[in-house]
Design a protein around this nucleic acid. Structure first.
Lengths: 358, 358
DNA sequence: TTAGAATATTGAATCGATCCAAAATTTTTT
DNA sequence: AAAAAATTTTGGATCGATTCAATATTCTAA
């Protein structure tokens, strides 16, 4: 049997109907409502379909009439591989999948690094609604998606324009939790390993940096840390803050900076688990023990954080549940609330401990 | 601005045209070929669209005319979350993503645990072609996909019906590589931790078990192991073989079995990295050192295998490249070959070492 | 001013199905 | 055997756009 892919002229339902000597209405029924057509006719039509190599009703045609695609779109401005590589995204996607599976819905991933493609891809995506991964405060996909006038939910990683239906967390409260935990262990010398405040920037900064920040998540986390420290009587202005790009080189740079200070920190507040894990590796390589010499608390609650050495104490977002909610909001758009704030939680593991006696 | 999701009556291009007092042909051009319509008219139509809350040309309509969806489908009979959770799948997906990104194509994931949904989802997926993850030798999605008469490629994890375009590896050759490696270290007492030969079966087996196996991958790997051992003068009939379900309980059972034998193995041939990693944990818990007391070689080359303790020696499949090829085959169906056999490679890490002197 | 060229706009045909009211056929009832 | 009821089949309308040949309009040049 030769490959069929090269079929020059696709067979249409009408062709099958003609060949079987029935109306197209009947032919359609054979495939969509077989129970209402007489057996004899049904067989004849099916035989004709087989003979012509008909691949079943083309969903393109069906779709137009049906209206509903039965698929939810997930959009991001990151490359598509983000969905499979990024630990955070993966857990969220897993939650989304769960709901799709239960509803028998499909999942369409839409992305593009290059802006032009992104626009087109979002405009032409065949979906009933969008979940937008608004990573790194890039709002373009949000706007594009909104244009489609389809149900959509923003998975908000630091974005809070009131007007849209978003699912997010209280970043400031999360940061407070982290700082409180370290404070309770008696730490007084802190360092903040921040995420970007604006697209692509990095380097040592002061608290003022947060003011005009594009990424409100970063800003809120910083405020959460600093306010908590201040309440504990620590001079927030003296706390070194370094803006990293959530990648190895900038995190290394941030640590080079902090540990060359006259009074290096004994406690590190990392705004992501990724940063924290990179930091742990760096510290171990420098012969500093975690949490013996330096304690560190991450942020996000990525699965990897549980396997790393030592297991990372972190602020966990309910990622899977966020995914579930987002998917439900699309599949059942009626009851989407304006904004859902999910609870965060301090997950105590082994990377933070009482300040050492030495 | 109120939520739009509840729009009772979606606005159609024709409505916009009417409101703007132009033909629908012109209205269509405003969106699809704006350069050929006079500026004044263009603005008028756009204004009308805005006023009516038109979300842009509905891809459902456009699609029917255009023919091409510009999306590739990935189908499996596993739940959707498989794509985000399974380490093997993730790497393959990452390769697929790469090509989709480059081509500006979307990615539609299709699945269903329940067979009925699967059929429907595959039949109604809006895609230009399918990549089928034929895990665990479940052929149903393959047949369903073939029915669509679209380009499709099977990512073959142990399936080799000649008639279809598949991408796979030479399982037997891979198994030989693994066995040779352990043989070279002087091992003479082996144990085989097999994958299933048929849907859901497990337990201790003999080489005969492979004969009628549904899963040719499992069969070929077993033959590869056994033949190589036999060539080295080892009595293949004396090698314990245990069929596992690639999960913790059955792998534990397999180890309980092997290590209660009078002459427990010093070298383990695992048919998947997952099995190997579960085995390593089990061995360590029993106080057996790897590779000091027991050497083990995995199969697949999953990323985790590099991070585990000790890092796993394994037979790597070029998963990412398999994904890339599959995606290319769909996007450019002309030159899909019948079957592509990808090279496998022995990745030497630390889980296998010379047999200990004791 | 006007013929001719260049540019814009129109509207019918098309994509591939499903739906549904009406017509045809078969079955049941009287 | 005719009428009534039930079951099948038909074919036109529809979903929402794009395309393209034909027509209308505007611009240029004489």
């Amino acid at each position: 049997m030769a490959r069929q892919a090269t079929a020059i002229k696709p067979v249409r339902l009408a062709d099958v109907a003609k060949a079987a000597g029935v109306s197209h209405g009947t032919a359609s029924n054979v495939f969509s409502h077989p129970e209402i057509v007489r057996e004899e006719v049904r067989e004849r039509v099916k035989a004709a379909a087989d003979a012509l190599g008909y691949g079943g009703p083309d969903p393109k045609g069906r779709l137009l009439r049906a209206g509903k695609v039965n698929a939810i779109g997930v959009a991001t401005a990151e490359p598509l591989s983000y969905f499979f590589d990024d630990p955070f995204a993966r857990v969220v996607m897993s939650g989304i999948s769960e709901i799709c599976d239960a509803a028998g819905a499909g999942l369409s991933l839409v992305s593009a690094i290059n802006g032009e493609h992104l626009a087109w891809n979002i405009q032409s995506a065949l979906v009933d609604g969008f979940i937008v991964f608004c990573v790194e405060g890039n709002w373009q996909p949000v706007h594009l998606t909104r244009e489609r006038k389809l149900p959509f939910v923003v998975l908000d990683f630091g974005y809070d324009e009131g007007a849209l239906s978003a699912i997010g967390i209280d970043n400031k409260a999360g940061a407070k939790l982290a700082a409180d935990h370290l404070l309770a262990f008696g730490h007084r010398r802190f360092g903040v390993l921040a995420l970007s405040f604006d697209e692509g920037s990095s380097g040592p900064v002061t608290a003022l940096r947060a003011e005009g920040a594009t990424y409100s998540g970063t800003r809120d986390r910083l405020y959460g840390y600093l306010e908590t420290l201040a309440e504990a009587g620590i001079d927030a202005a003296g706390v070194p803050i370094y803006e990293t790009g959530n990648d190895v080189p900038t995190v290394h740079a941030s640590l080079d900076y902090m540990f060359s200070l006259p009074e290096p920190p004994t406690a590190l507040l990392a705004m992501s688990d990724r940063i924290a894990m990179i930091a742990i590796d760096w510290l171990k390589e420098r012969g500093l023990s975690v949490p013996g010499d330096v304690s560190i608390v991450g942020f996000d609650g990525v699965p990897e954080a549980a396997w790393c050495k030592p297991p990372l104490t972190t602020i966990a977002q309910p990622m899977r549940e966020m995914g579930r909610r987002a998917a439900r909001a699309i599949l059942d758009p009626g009851q989407a609330e304006r904004r859902q704030e999910m609870p965060i939680e301090l997950v105590v593991r082994e990377s933070a401990a009482p300040v050492s006696a030495r």
